[in-house]
Design a protein around this nucleic acid. Sequence first.
RNA 1: GGGCGCAUAGCUCAGCGGGAGAGCGCUCGCUUCACACGCGAGAGGUCCCUGGUUCGAUCCCAGGUGCGCCCACCA
Length: 809
Amino acid sequence: MSETKEMQPRYEPAGVEERWQRTWEDEGLYRAVPDPSKTPFVDAHPPPNVTGELHMGHALQLAVGDTIVRMKRMQGYNVLFQPGYDHAGISTQNAVEKALLREGTSRQELGREKFEARVWEWLHEYGGKILVQFRRMGASLDYSRTRFTMDEAYVRAVMRFFVHLYRKGWIYRANRIINWCPYHQTSLSDLELVHVDVDDVLSTIRYPLADGDGHIAIATVRPATIPADVAVAVHPEDDRYKHLVGREVIVPWTEQRVPVIADERVEREFGTGALKITPGHDPTDFAIGRDHGLPEPSCIGLDGLVTAAGLEGLTQKEAEEKILDWCRERGLLEKRESYRHTVALCERCETRIEPLISLQWWCSMEELKRRPLELLRAREIVYHPESQHRFAIDSLENAPDWNISRQIWWGHQLPVWTCPDGHLTVQETEPEACADCGSTELTRETDVLDTWFSSALWPFATLGWPDDTEDLRHFYPGHLQTTAREIIRLWENRMIFSGLELLGEKPFSDVIIHSTVLAPDGRRMSKSLGTGIDPLEVIERYGTDPTRYGLLKNSLTQDVRFSYAAIEEGAKLANKLWNAARLIVTSCEGALPAERPASLEERWILARLSQTQREVERLLGEFDFAHTTDALYHLTFDDFCDWYLEAVKARLYDGDADARATATAALERLLKLLHPLLPHVTEEIWSHLPERETRLIVAPWPEAGGEEEAGALQRVQESAQVFRRSGIVPQLEGDEKRIFDAVVKPERAPQRGGADAEAERARLRKEIARAEGMLANERFVENAPAEVVAAEREKLERYRRELEAVGDA
RNA sequence: GGGCGCAUAGCUCAGCGGGAGAGCGCUCGCUUCACACGCGAGAGGUCCCUGGUUCGAUCCCAGGUGCGCCCACCA
């Protein structure tokens, strides 16, 4: 399938990349088909939010997964790289609501059914955008298998999961304090909040003792919640208040009598050391209240407005004013001081969160987390880098029960029906009648499930579960996951326990937690800061190959700053490779004779290719992309181009058949090693090589041969170094002399003066003195490892040899 | 308040017990028939500070300083 196109001196990714992306997909080379004769390799790529535009983190994530997957595919694995997108409950609902607002209407006006229809409409318009972006990033996903978490089949999996957990007794309904977003009118998990610092006012208010004997002062930033106070708490060891425990105080405004209790969760150092207890509107107070058996009244409604007697319908600010005035009149307001603290906001709309008590659905984690922990501890599932493995274990150990219900409209409605008598019927599909009393007047639970409840099924719901499909049998359990750090607890842990619980096997064995890509100035990339860089714009400018190279050049262990320089390095590598290929292709037209690598430089480059291949296999096995790029960059520039090609160039021009055959073979191997990293340029070059039977993307990964000759050019390279520094031509013979003359071109090199030679001698003498000094140190020779001492001896000999060559004046 | 991580050349970063490295940038020399997104040479560094362990520390340990991220109910 060689195509005879002229190769331009400069490689231009534009056009070439899109062409290959189409070709690979059209020729079905991304397709994954179950085949029992092959070993599967599965990476279920995280489904981005359907509303989203891909950001730099997605680009990195895709590059990481795609690089591994491309190597595996060439190595003969039956690769499934699964694409799709997530319905992203609240985030999607938000986007559509914003659109409705612009049209002058609202979700409430439309009603639930019309709103849902509207979301689907919106999805049909924008939902495909993600996949276009995936393709443009060169991701070799099997697009024919694209799944959506609200597909009919997927919904069935979600319902099955819920019913399964319910029947196990792990799903329950309970009143708990939750994070309530008054704007979205829904509960939110702790992980859906953002915390920001705000300037607030801390008020110190006196609660008179019921027996008239003085007062206790408490400090609060939320006087509006005073009407729901049920106690005042002090630390049990606090000598200031010990004597008051068990007595009663009078709550301002309501003038209710409440007890003084002791609890060690009270911070003695904060404020006055006394804390008002409002279980209905504060998580700490809620916990303390439950432990002390206190009532849980509320004074703030779901809309965030106050409901307390005499304050009905007021905003919290207004209520606060009234209460503070009330206190002031009675001399109970001790002081007001400015106070900076953090508050929780809804991450979607940045509305201040109200902690409220609400009836929610929960999933108990006690049983579900047991086996995942065993597997993680046994390292049957491994997070990379190692620090994230420990974090994953910690976060699972401490996983609280999971609030799985949300009071929004867009999502999977709970498969729970209630009859007028309050019996619950829980089953996958709509029941005819109540399971308990046979009533046919059933109403379905209006809550929907947390988005992550469905995401948790991604590795197998995409394969057809709950049906026993061929896909499932062949492609489950999978292997790789690539994810951002912040969703380990939201997603990774839940995929693991759901896979183990429902299918009995872990969904994957390795999880790569990639780094966060920061803006060039080290700040977070974010739209609101204006620091975001659109990966598609970078791709437009530099090409996909350079972009993924630039992103992968960084280590996984720490956050990295986005760097155009790294991407330009990738562009240079692509261009260098292109030109190396141009030299070989243009001088090697015509039939190829048998390969017979006879000369020193040929044996050397083939050994270097093998050596680097092993290194790349090892590095990618450890998911070390930074060193992979480094090794391949130097292999291409230094070894392949600057030494090997320079050495054989003359023979290629002369039409030496053996040289041409070996050059083509060597280039072929170089292209294979580089393909996972730079898929497009390597495939394009491959298409210019004569008589290729397959596309490079599915060409077999080479067998790494021997490495014995990898050091064969050492003497020539050392001589070159000495010559270039000193101008002194070394004594070499045969192949070594020929290579030296071809690569170093002594006749063309500028004549060096005596100063250079003298500088070189001085350098060598210094090195020799250092090495001699070390070897003269008995304690070094005795205590240092034998190989370290031997290496030092070798160095000494080499320096002496070089000094002799330079002429020890 | 917990947890994790980072401080190495002008910049971005690798190295992590025995010669201080890469890429970019900078200086100098190359109109060498694959490539100037090239080739060659070079300048540039108390490897954050203070102690400790060691024959030997950029690397290990302790403390300090300065950053970053994640988590957390100080009202």
